[in-house]
Amino acid sequence: MDNLLVAVAGGDRSAFVELFEHFAPRVKSYLMRLGCDMSAAEEIGQEVMVTVWRRAETFDRRQASASTWMFTIARNKRIDAVRRERRPEFDPTDPAFMPEPEIGGDMAVQAKQETATVVEAIAELPEEQGYLLRMAYYDDKPHSVIAAETGLPLGTVKSRLRLALTKLRKIMKEHE
């Protein structure tokens, strides 16, 4: 998929068709999971794919996988189309941007996460932990809403999210 996206950046239409066939149906599912009806998901999904073609040259395979990059495009397009809000993001070319320190253990530049590894790790999470994370990505539920709906204190929800992420990192480390 990463190779396809690089080819798309170079203007390769047949690569774009392949990319479309893999991602457009998933982007549509993603939008529907987040509350779009069939026709809105279709329309916004097509917008996503047009944007992918236009912005493919900003894809950097060293930083993110194709799936991750596609996810950010779909996420931002939904915020734009459904919430009618902008999505503020940092700009690495800004002179005020603080780059990674040259050295340092935990702060060292992390290798990019391979999507297949993360997919496997999510599947291995205990049921409740996987559910908690899926709620955030698929159900449009920020941690404050999860707390309100489940009746749990905010601190409890936060620590459960933290535990789920710690577990996920642990599983991914074991896969390395």
Binding site: F23, Y30, A66, Q110, V118, I122
Partner: peptide, 26 residues
């Protein structure tokens, strides 16, 4: 940079979530 690294990790989780979804016919 520290939070940025964690944010990138969580976007990669989003990529995996997208990849895990069953396709819906367009």
């Amino acid at each position: 940079p520290e939070c940025r690294a964690r944010a990138e990790e969580l976007e990669a989780l989003g990529g995996a979530m997208l990849e895990s979804l069953a396709p819906t016919a367009v």
